[in-house]
């Protein structure tokens, strides 16, 4: 299967509904191919929910949404055993996590206890409710959102263990002026909003994921990935560097990036592009570091410090 064509088709279909933010859509597809979860940071009203719904529709999958508030309980997320008076028995009612695309809206409004209820499902694609384990059919992707301008009160920062489970952290920006004009025009013309049609099946997606795993990574690029990850653990402004899970995520993301560009091999440029998106949110900065730089800036410094592998000419 031509992966770049597959991605282009999905992008075009989503483009019918989401105007602009093509890069974000592409990166979400990268995560989807790798069955990774996305933390979307964006201001309200940029189309996060529509995007998540569109993705679910294009892959012909189920879509569920949880609006997190401080009083959402873990059982509201995972599910409960409820007492059925008719049968006089307890029945299992699974929570909204049992789906293909889960939109965890404003995740940082939930208490840490509720946020933690997503840990198992994000990593193991299963949920345990009162000793009963429910497997979730692939693909499964969590699109969590948080508002960057949110005040401190009433929000709870995501714990590091949870952040590490997110494949990428993306920032969804405002559309360009021309794109915003097109959005206005689209809303004027259409009485009914278009909905994307299913472009692929879940089986197709699985096949694409398997093909992406075949993308070649040379030893030099492997060393480059390792150097970057190890540098995040040694930087003076970083308290906790990227985890081995981060290393694997970076490797998978660059494979998908290469495949989406119709290449069967990974280049250092792919690594350079994906590293800030995959590793930044996994790093915990020192107090001094946090007062002067954000994670992206430090990641930029790390990338500048690490030597990029280049092809040497053969000396005769």
């Amino acid at each position: 299967m031509e992966i770049h064509q597959f991605v282009k088709d999905i992008k075009d279909e989503i483009g019918k509904v989401i105007i602009g933010n093509e890069n974000t859509v592409e990166l979400i597809l990268n995560a989807l191919i790798n069955e990774g979860h996305i933390l979307l940071e964006s201001v309200p009203g940029t189309g996060k929910t529509t995007l998540a719904k569109s993705i679910a529709r294009t892959i012909d999958g189920d879509f569920n949404r949880i609006q997190f508030t401080p009083d959402v309980l873990p059982s509201d997320v995972t599910g409960i055993h409820f007492f059925n008076p008719k049968d006089q028995q307890f029945e299992l009612r699974v929570g909204p996590v049992v789906t293909n695309v889960l939109l965890a809206d404003e995740i940082n409004r939930a208490t840490p206890r509720t946020q933690s209820s997503l840990l198992e499902v994000m990593e193991e694609k299963q949920v345990t409710i009162d000793r009963e384990t429910v497997k979730i059919e692939p693909p499964f992707i969590v699109l969590a959102t948080q508002n960057p301008i949110e005040s401190q009160q009433g929000t709870f920062d995501l714990p590091e263990a949870q952040l590490d489970r997110f494949f990428m952290k993306l920032e969804m920006s405002y559309p360009q002026a021309e794109e915003e004009r097109r959005i206005m025009q689209a809303h004027r013309k259409e009485t009914e909003r278009p909905t994307p049609s299913p472009i692929c099946t879940k089986e197709n997606l699985k096949k694409v994921s398997e093909e992406v795993r075949q993308v070649h990574i040379s030893e030099a690029v492997e060393d480059y990935i390792l150097d970057i990850v190890r540098s995040t653990r040694e930087h003076p402004y970083i308290e906790v560097g990227a985890s081995p899970r981060g290393t694997i995520a970076l490797m998978k993301s660059v494979q998908a990036e290469a495949a989406m560009r119709n290449r069967s091999y990974v280049t250092p440029n792919d690594v350079k592009k994906m590293a800030p998106l995959v590793l930044s949110h996994r790093m915990v900065l020192t107090l001094e570091g946090a007062t002067k730089h954000n994670q992206q800036e430090i990641m930029g410094e790390v990338l500048q410090q690490v030597n990029v592998p280049v092809e040497h000419s053969i000396e005769r």
């Binding site: 005040s151 401190q152 009160q153 920062d157 900065l285 107090l287 946090a290 007062t291």
Partner: peptide
Amino acid sequence: VPNGVGRDHYVQSL
């Protein structure tokens, strides 16, 4: 500086 906690809050205070 409204009530808050954490590194971002410290940055805001500074």
